[in-house]
Design a protein around this nucleic acid. Sequence first.
DNA 1: ACAAATTAGTTAGGTGCCATACTATATTCA
DNA 2: TGAATATAGTATGGCACCTAACTAATTTGT
Lengths: 196, 196
Amino acid sequence: MANDNKVWNQNDAIPSLVQSKRQIERYGLDVDAQAILVATRLLAAGTRLGHASEVHFARFGLSTGRYRVLVELEDSEGEALPSQLAENLGVTRATMTGLIDTLERDGLVSRRTSAQDGRQRSVILTEEGARRLQAMAPEHFARLEAMVGLLSIEERGVFLDLLGRVTQGISALTDETIEPNKPAGESKKKQHRSKG
Amino acid sequence: MANDNKVWNQNDAIPSLVQSKRQIERYGLDVDAQAILVATRLLAAGTRLGHASEVHFARFGLSTGRYRVLVELEDSEGEALPSQLAENLGVTRATMTGLIDTLERDGLVSRRTSAQDGRQRSVILTEEGARRLQAMAPEHFARLEAMVGLLSIEERGVFLDLLGRVTQGISALTDETIEPNKPAGESKKKQHRSKG
DNA sequence: ACAAATTAGTTAGGTGCCATACTATATTCA
DNA sequence: TGAATATAGTATGGCACCTAACTAATTTGT
């Protein structure tokens, strides 16, 4: 039995400043190595976050997406349209169909054809779905709290601010063209809190 | 032609403090809403980061993983073993096989059977693979730099520090049991969460 | 009224990554 | 020496999410 199951050895895959500098020098580019380091670490963290999230929700028989559907339903008095859910969760309607399929198979939601509009099939949170949410809540939130437990209260506030701006910056990766994203001028950071 | 393809509307799917509080109150839990907000925003950011990264590398005919393989090869003088690559990138050997398959199909790497050990098939960065890396470097690094462009130099340092600790905290999601991660320095945090 | 356009949801097919189980080649040691 | 074991790499099948194309129902325009 070669038990070589690797359970995410978090020591590897953390990019170093040396690596960033080496890459930049190799091609003689004019970019800031520190900025590249931050960006690269961020991407690595994103990968790990996504993976960890799936592992976490799998404990409760869910995936990240399916959990979010259940929560969204709970916040909508137990009923919502697939298109609403897709919109609120930021996934496509096709993806939402798949999420609902699995949730329905597991008995956590059910579908009902609308009387008003024959195209609509609203999604309903079942008793068991609500129970599942309730059952997982203590552990779920305790783990979330533990995740940021290495930050003090004040640091959490700072991190929220910085993360917010970095999150805005993600679009620099997906935009058609590169727009230089200046650091809020010479003054201080502010505004940009679009919604809450 | 209902062109309702959504190209990641970054306004949605950002969790609010109100949502966090509501969820916590619903189940009468004893957790800090601010901490939950940070954790939730972080997970959302992770999802977006992963997605954006794939979009970004797709521009160059690569994926996140395949790009990392090429870079790792470049850092290893153009040759490495699949198991080494898997180890360094933090993916399974099975995943590495798939990554190499695609890279080989695209002519960016080639495989060569080892003379020493018949089980080994080392991976070699081809000329075209090196050219691809060189060609994409300017835009790639410019976009990475732009991603963190909303942060000042000092803020980047702070963010690196906080991100490092939060990244450590990710294991709180994947660990078997919950261990209450306290900020360095504080010896007691009066945390009465005896989940079993 | 009725064809054209829009909308809701689904199906089909693709990518990225993973875990499990397998093949083939060393290595160990009784 | 030869059976048991470990190791390198791969095949298989799964999940999450995507885009594009499709079906069915509703609205719109003349």
